[in-house]
Each structure stands twice: as structure tokens, then as C-alpha cells.
């Protein structure tokens, strides 16, 4: 029998003043939040810093969280906003820097497991995801990787359910186009 404390229970503990209970939240969600940031930055150090900021922001604002709602959605929204802010700040940087970042993307992606059966396929999927606008990319991750419902995704992104469905569809189209272009390029 495995006991898994519910998010509401843990947050109630935090709200009662037990800050250490927040550790359960960090341990539970560190991986998806870190990966969200990694997909945004393509740099492990930056991803770790941003993910850390996301958890700290969640902790600071935890009183605003309504018990009974899905905590993961709330946390992901915070992380997503941080990721968007980060992207905006990056846009202001010089073209030279952008080129550097492009190179870094390729280099850093090699950190993905080389043990997977289709290593090159995995890399190309990762590349295709990385080049998507953040809202399309994360909708795909939330839907297919995190297995969230369209209703949850819609609430999280503050859009309608049909809008969420459309983003999923368009995201897949964009990915397919990118993969096709890179295939033709090769």
C-alpha cells in the first residue's frame, strides 16, 4: 500500500505554517516544471533557475490558491507565465545572441538520452517541439505528455475549450510541417 499525500492536504499544511511540507510539492512536480523550462530555454542551468523561481513564486502566492482546485494546473500556469516572460526578455537580445542560442539548442539537445531506440527521431521531435511558439508547444505537452483534459488545459491557459482544441491541432500541423521541411532539407 503506497500513501500519496494529496496536493490539498500538503497545501493545507503549508497554510497552517509548516513550510517544510512544501518539499512534497517540489519533489512531486520538479520534473515537469524543470522540463517546461528546459523546453523554453534549451539550457539546463537556466531551466533550473527558472523552475526554482516558479516554485518560489508559487510558495509566495500559495494563499491565493483555492483548495479543491487542481494545484498542478495553478503551478503550471505560474511556470508558463515565467517562461513567457523569459522568452520576451530574450526577444530583446541581439541577433548574434539568437544565433548563439540556436547553436546551443542543437548542442544541448544531445543531452537527451542516447539509449532510446530511435535517438535521431527523438531529437528531431524535440527540435520540432522547441521551435513551436510556447503556447502551441505546451498545449501539446499538457495534452499528450501530462495527459490533461481539454477542459483543464483551457482553464489553465484562460482560453475556451474549442480554442484549446484548435491549438492542439495547429500545434501538430506546425510540427508536421517543420519535420517535413527538415526532411526535405536533408
Amino acid at each position: 500500500m503506497m500513501f500519496n499525500p494529496g496536493d490539498d492536504q500538503v497545501i493545507a499544511e503549508v497554510l497552517r505554517g509548516d513550510s517544510d511540507a512544501f518539499r512534497f510539492i517540489v519533489e512531486k512536480y520538479e520534473k515537469p516544471i524543470f522540463n517546461l523550462m528546459y523546453r523554453t530555454t534549451c539550457n539546463q542551468d537556466e531551466a533550473a533557475d527558472l523552475a526554482q523561481d516558479a516554485f518560489l513564486r508559487a510558495y509566495e502566492n500559495i494563499k491565493k490558491f483555492k483548495l479543491g482546485k487542481k494545484f498542478y494546473s495553478w503551478l503550471y500556469t505560474i511556470a508558463l507565465n515565467l517562461a513567457r516572460d523569459h522568452m520576451r526578455s530574450k526577444v530583446r537580445e541581439t541577433k548574434f545572441h539568437k544565433e548563439q542560442k540556436k547553436d546551443a539548442k542543437v548542442a544541448d539537445n544531445t543531452m537527451l538520452s542516447t539509449e532510446t531506440e530511435n535517438y535521431y527521431e527523438t531529437q528531431s521531435i524535440y527540435q520540432a517541439l522547441s521551435q513551436l511558439p510556447i503556447d502551441y508547444r505546451e498545449v501539446l505537452i499538457l495534452k499528450y505528455k501530462n495527459d490533461l483534459t481539454m477542459e483543464d488545459i483551457a482553464k489553465m491557459l484562460d482560453i475556451s475549450v474549442s480554442g484549446a482544441k484548435m491549438r492542439v491541432r495547429r500545434g501538430l500541423d506546425k510540427m508536421r510541417n517543420y519535420l517535413e521541411e527538415t526532411d526535405n532539407g536533408n
Binding site: 522540463n35 539546463q44 517541439l129 501539446l140 505528455k145
Partner: peptide, 8 residues
Amino acid sequence: AIETLPEL
């Protein structure tokens, strides 16, 4: 492919 994408 997205479902089975490895995570860091």
C-alpha cells in the same frame, strides 16, 4: 512521439 518523449 510526444507521449514517449524522454524527459530530463
